[in-house]
C-alpha cells in the first residue's frame, strides 16, 4: 500500500508548483507510470480522492499514462521493449535484457491549472 505515500508526494509536489499561481485551482494532474512500477491505478485513484481533500488539488482528475518496459539487449546492441512482465528476455534473440530503466517511471508529467482571477473586466 505505498500508493498513499505516492499520492502524498504528488500532493506536496503539485502544491509547491501551484504556489506560484496564487488562488489557482488544479484541474488535472498527468502522471507517467511505468508498467514495472508496481502501482495499482485503482488504488492510486482511490487514495488520490482522499489525499487531495482540502488542498489545491481537490476535485482534480488524475490521468495515468502507462509506460511499457524496456531495456538494453547487449547481443543485439539495441534497446528493446519487453511485452511480458514474466520474461525479461529480448524479443529478438532471447538473450537477457539489461538495464531495465524504462518502465519504472513514477513521474508527474504536467498539471492543468485554472487561474483564480474572477476579475471584473471593464
Amino acid at each position: 500500500m505505498h500508493e498513499l505515500s505516492l499520492v502524498a508526494s504528488i500532493v506536496d509536489a503539485v502544491t509547491e508548483s501551484v504556489s506560484a499561481y496564487p488562488g489557482a485551482r488544479v484541474k488535472e494532474v498527468r502522471l507517467r507510470v511505468g508498467a514495472l512500477a508496481a502501482v495499482i491505478e485503482e488504488s492510486l485513484q482511490f487514495c488520490y480522492g482522499i489525499a487531495t481533500e482540502d488542498t489545491p488539488l481537490q476535485g482534480s482528475a488524475l490521468i495515468v499514462t502507462v509506460v511499457p518496459v524496456g531495456g538494453h539487449c547487449p547481443s543485439c546492441a539495441r534497446d528493446v521493449e519487453i511485452a511480458s512482465l514474466q520474461s525479461f528476455r529480448c524479443p529478438l534473440c532471447c538473450g537477457p535484457v539489461e538495464n531495465v530503466r524504462q518502465g519504472r517511471e513514477l513521474e508527474i508529467e504536467s498539471i492543468e491549472i485554472e487561474d483564480a482571477e474572477e476579475t471584473v473586466q471593464s
Binding site: A13, E107, I108, S110, D115
Partner: peptide, 16 residues
Amino acid sequence: MTTRIVELRQGILKKN
C-alpha cells in the same frame, strides 16, 4: 477564466 498547462516532468519520489 484561463487554464494553462504547467510541465513538471518531476519524479514523484524525487526527494527520496
